[in-house]
Simulated scan of single mutants.
Amino acid sequence: MAITLDAQLLEILACPSPDHAPLRPGTPDDPDADALTCTECGRVYPVRDGIPVLLLDEAISPTDPDDSHADGA
């Protein structure tokens, strides 16, 4: 399901990482995903119940493997 954020809100939202780049809807693999992707660093931020979760701890880094965390095991 594609996210539906107000256009004005999307204009002012920015990645919370130090580069503060604009965000675009969707992910690189799925433009209709409930997420926002940073145009600079590529981090993907989830959108839950229509609310963007712009926390670096919640972001999926473009270098992370699919839905898994490397724990050295």
Rank of each mutant, 00 (worst) to 15 (best):
M1F: 00
A2Q: 05
A2I: 01
T4V: 09
T4D: 13
L5K: 04
L5N: 01
D6K: 01
A7I: 03
A7K: 06
A7G: 00
A7M: 00
Q8R: 15
L9Y: 08
L9R: 10
L10D: 04
L10V: 02
L10M: 05
E11R: 15
E11A: 15
E11S: 14
I12Y: 10
L13G: 01
L13H: 06
A14V: 15
A14F: 03
C15I: 07
C15M: 06
C15L: 08
P16K: 03
P16T: 07
P16I: 08
P18D: 06
D19Y: 02
D19V: 08
D19N: 07
D19I: 03
D19S: 12
D19W: 05
D19H: 13
H20E: 14
H20K: 13
H20M: 09
H20V: 05
H20F: 04
H20D: 08
A21L: 07
P22H: 07
P22W: 04
P22A: 13
R24C: 03
R24E: 13
R24M: 11
P28I: 10
P28Y: 01
D29T: 11
D29P: 00
D30V: 15
P31N: 09
D32G: 10
D32H: 09
A33R: 13
A33W: 07
A33H: 07
A33K: 07
A33I: 11
A33D: 14
A33Q: 12
D34V: 00
A35C: 11
A35I: 09
L36M: 06
T37F: 09
T37H: 06
T37I: 06
C38Q: 05
E40V: 04
C41T: 15
G42A: 11
R43M: 07
P46S: 03
V47H: 00
V47G: 02
V47T: 03
R48N: 08
D49I: 04
D49V: 04
D49Y: 05
G50Q: 09
I51E: 13
P52R: 08
P52V: 11
V53L: 12
V53D: 02
L55M: 13
L55T: 01
L56S: 10
L56C: 09
D57V: 10
D57W: 05
D57E: 15
E58Y: 14
A59N: 02
A59I: 02
I60F: 01
S61D: 15
P62I: 10
P62F: 12
P62V: 12
T63H: 15
T63A: 15
T63L: 14
T63V: 15
D64A: 13
D64L: 00
D64Q: 07
P65W: 12
P65L: 14
P65T: 11
P65M: 11
D66I: 09
D66T: 06
D66V: 10
D67K: 07
D67A: 12
S68P: 00
S68R: 11
H69V: 00
A70V: 09
A70F: 05
G72F: 02
G72Y: 02
